[in-house]
Design a protein around this nucleic acid. Structure first.
Length: 439
RNA sequence: GGCGAGUUACCCAAGCGGCCAAAGGGAUCUGACUGUAACUCAGCUGUGUUACCACUUCGGGGGUUCGAAUCCCUCACUCGCCA
């Protein structure tokens, strides 16, 4: 494999693997089909003339995250096959809240939701081509639900729904069996999502909706509604929820979500997340999150088994996914920073430019000479309190420029500032922060 | 509607007047090992400038007491049993 830090190294061009008999077969091979409506019919449908399909994203946060990335790349694969994507942002569904199995959601203000709708819309468009006859079209479900009166909604949509069926949906029954119960608001969610599909079917002849398998109840809400209202069978595909082989939640780093917004998770942090993928998970991730061909992935799979310590799979995965989300430039910078910071080498020997860009990738604390390291650790977000800082140092878990800090009383000194740029503060093996001087 | 049980730190769960910042387990975090791993072993885990010192904490509020997570009253919520 070529060196990924090489300027010549470029991410693979997104395309579907022509060695598969059909797009459907590739999707199955990649493990992207967890549940669907009629598989045979879908295989045919996806092989035929372009169809219109959609996937919705609710504004529950100011950015999409890795779970959403599965959907976006799934959509991209269909688009590459010539199909027409509709990117839906949930301006109205975001106001209501999809019932989570555990507890009622806190409603966000309309202003907040509207703001997030804008952010998500922009993110979605970065992953789907706007070019050609099958360029992505963005829609917002608030456009057709806002003008709808409660009476019309109940008469035109509600009449098609049986409460018995609604109660059987997993998300709803889980809540009914829990202490949390469920509000009428969230109970109504499936009607709204069903209406979306119906609306898109009528407006754009949309005949396929994809979503996470946990959304299956909501996906079928739409297919059932269209069947009742229009007498037509349309389709739905539920992609698997990505899980880690060790049972922990995928897409979280120390409990925090991995967001796609570089302001929330830096490209460096994003790259690091992927580089730290477990051996047991690498191949499955490559299939889902990259456009590498089957042959290439099978080749890497062998390397992962034969030479796991080289971590070629992780590096390739991190390179590809980070490039897809943040671009090649940012990815190269992230790799360079990773090498500078994790290399066994002496940080003091780095040149100013390399060090500066490496530090730029890290969370930052502004310090001044004489400032206690315990405070800098807190400022950098490496610890939560001075006590924790002290404890970490006493356990030998804190490093300044790769040198263990011996005393909890240590302060920032002038010689710690490398080539006039700053210092590298590290907690544990791989949690890093930059320290720069205030001036 | 009646009777009974319960609400403890990130989660589960002991404690039932002082020795309780609060057992134990899980989880996180740190160290050794290592591949920036996994497994295993060890340690930390309320806050405070370095502390057997102070402060905040045991559902909310109010009492009793030299002293309460522990006793009393009250409010809220949860869970059983009987109507």
């Amino acid at each position: 494999m070529s060196d990924l830090t090489d300027e010549a190294a470029t991410p693979v061009v997104p395309r579907n693997d022509a060695t598969f008999e059909s797009l459907w077969d590739e999707l199955v091979w990649r493990g992207l089909i967890h549940v669907s409506t009629d598989a045979e019919a879908l295989r045919e449908l996806l092989q035929g003339d372009p169809i219109t399909y959609y996937c919705g994203f609710d504004p529950t946060a100011p950015s999409l995250h890795l779970g959403n990335l599965v959907q976006l790349l799934f959509m991209r694969r269909l688009q590459l096959a010539g199909h027409r994507p509709l990117g839906l942002v949930g301006g109205s569904t975001g106001l209501v809240g999809d019932p989570r199995p555990t507890a009622e959601r806190t409603l966000n203000t309309k202003e907040t939701v509207a703001e997030w709708v804008g952010y998500l819309g922009a993110q979605i468009q970065r992953f789907l081509s706007a070019e050609g006859s099958n360029g992505v079209r963005m829609v917002n479900n608030l456009d057709w639900t806002a003008p709808l009166s409660a009476i019309d909604f109940l008469r035109d949509v509600g009449k098609y729904y049986r409460v018995g069926t609604m109660l059987k949906k997993d998300a709803v029954s889980a809540r009914l069996n829990s202490e949390a119960g469920i509000s009428y608001t969230e109970f109504s969610y499936q009607l709204l999502q069903g209406l979306d599909y119906l609306e898109l079917y009528r407006q754009y002849d949309c005949v396929l909706q994809s979503g996470g398998s946990d959304q299956w109840g909501n996906l079928t809400s739409g297919t059932d509604l269209i069947h009742r209202a229009e007498g037509v069978r349309v389709h739905a595909i539920g992609t698997p929820l990505i899980t880690n082989s060790d049972g922990t939640k995928f897409g979280k780093s120390e409990g925090n979500a991995i967001w796609l917004d570089p302001d929330l998770v830096s490209p460096y942090g994003f790259y690091q997340f992927w580089v730290n993928t477990e051996d047991a998970d690498v191949v499955a991730r490559l299939k889902v999150f990259t456009f590498l061909s089957r042959a290439e992935i099978e080749r890497i799979a062998e390397l992962v088994v034969r030479e796991p310590f080289r971590r070629e799979g992780q590096k390739r995965l991190a390179f590809e996914v980070t490039s897809t989300v943040h671009g090649v430039e940012a990815t190269r910078a992230a790799i360079a920073a990773s090498q500078a910071l994790f290399g066994q080498g002496d940080l003091a020997r780095l040149d100013a430019a390399t060090l500066d860009s490496a530090l730029a990738a890290l969370p930052r604390a502004i310090g001044s000479l004489g400032m206690p390291l315990t405070q800098l650790l807190v400022d950098a977000g490496l610890t939560k309190s001075l006590g924790e800082s002290r404890r970490a140092i006493e356990q030998g878990g804190v490093y300044l420029n790769n040198v263990t800090v011996g005393s909890a009383d240590a302060v920032l000194t002038a010689d710690a500032i490398l080539v006039g740029v700053g210092a590298v503060l590290r907690r544990g093996k791989r949690t890093l922060a930059a320290v720069t001087l205030a001036d």
